[in-house]
Design a protein around this nucleic acid. Structure first.
Lengths: 227, 227
DNA sequence: AGGAAATATGAATAAATTATGAAGATTATG
DNA sequence: CATAATCTTCATAATTTATTCATATTTCCT
């Protein structure tokens, strides 16, 4: 059964990005934009993990934690605007399992989610291997194979390939892809994706000038060729 | 056959963590959150070892021990909140085989479990020798060989190498590795791992500046090179 | 075919990550 | 209790990656 994660933050954009990424990883996501909603959602959905912003209107993260802890022991990852020792201390006292400083990258979040779930003995949600054509990507072990050859990719290249490979045949816009790479960080320049694609092609394509796997969708973005 | 360990503690979180570590070591784990449940579970499962918290609601650890001892002689490791001589004395009088003070590190727990099982003549659950390339690591005898040469490692270095060696080719995040070393990565500083890696490389690599065995996976962590 | 728009590419620069040496803190040991 | 060993933290050097930018190439449309 897919693990459920409750994401609580008043920034809807951030929540959306986080949601997309967690869902891609195979988690079920429930959202709330303040402590009150979160309490309600926590009771309804009984999530396996809560990702919680501290600064929120109405009822802040600490208040939520205090109330929630009376009912359940769900592991919690705190989101903090910046590292303040106070926050760390208070969060720790209240029983947070980890914390993350905004802005953060999706990969960083995923790593922490995994770590916390493992630490608290909750199993992985699903196989972490993506395969299409001759390409294998293993998120768990973090390797990419072209045929039988292992290929070293940079983090951006790896995430980019993972995104494309998650839905072969689907065209992703540069904005989509940029979100996967940068998460909640401030907006970048879409063309950055082009460069990553170029570098990625150089590593996995037999003839980078005539790409077989990563196709350009003129006016839209890129897609991974479906067999 | 895998050895069964009964873990008894009212802190479900702690039980989950302990469960995760024991299972990773190849033990089968049964859980209970108070003395009553524990008695029931002990009768049902006939565990090879019991890890028992003293402070629990309903029926505390001492009471459980008294009752359980009438039925079986299962070795018991006690968990105590902090070292109180009284606890130690009472526990050992009642026949506990060892005790552990919270908070404790996974390696500490595992070490004591092994020791108690060995002392009471119960076999180890799985092979304790990891080998890859030119490196041999024996968890049982606690030695490391590079080729034919024995190498002295510190406890952290040993655990780090054991973790990496458990899945050659798999990239481990610093968070993962910190977990293995400290039990809870929340409080630690990830970069500590870098230093252990440096020191470990200095001991097992021919040319530490150009590591052969322990590879850096930029943006992710480290991995042991798969042959 | 011609031109506008989009993409590809190489190279320079900026940013992020890792490696390292050494100091300070902690833990084990006699 | 003192000493040694180990672990952690910190500052900074070295390395790798990400981003930007200028320009070449390709695609699309009429």
């Amino acid at each position: 059964m897919a693990k459920t994660i409750l994401v609580v933050d008043d920034e809807t954009r951030l929540v959306s990005v986080v949601e997309a990424y967690l869902e891609q990883e195979g988690y079920k996501v429930v959202k709330a934009s303040n402590g009150r909603e979160a309490l309600f959602a926590a009771r309804q959905e009984k999530p396996d993990l809560i990702i919680l912003d501290i600064m929120m209107p109405e009822m802040d993260g600490y208040e939520f934690m205090r109330l929630h802890r009376k009912e359940r022991e769900t592991p919690i990852i705190l989101l903090t605007a910046k590292v303040e020792d106070d926050d760390k201390v208070i969060g720790l006292e209240l029983g947070a399992d980890d914390y993350l400083t905004k802005p953060f990258r999706p990969r960083e979040l995923i790593a922490r989610v995994r770590a916390v779930l493992r630490r608290t003995g909750i199993a992985e949600p699903r196989a972490q291997v993506l395969r299409e054509g001759n390409i294998t990507l293993d998120r768990e072990s973090h390797f990419v194979k072209v045929g039988e050859d292992f290929v070293d990719l940079t983090p951006s290249e790896f995430d980019l390939l993972a995104a494309l490979l998650s839905s072969p045949g689907r065209a992703f816009s540069r904005l989509d892809l940029l979100d996967r790479l940068q998460g909640t960080a401030f907006e970048g320049y879409e063309r950055t994706i082009d460069v990553h694609v170029k570098n990625l092609r150089a590593k996995i394509e037999q003839d980078p000038r005539n790409p077989h796997y990563i196709e350009t969708v003129y006016g839209v973005g890129y897609r991974f060729r479906r067999e």
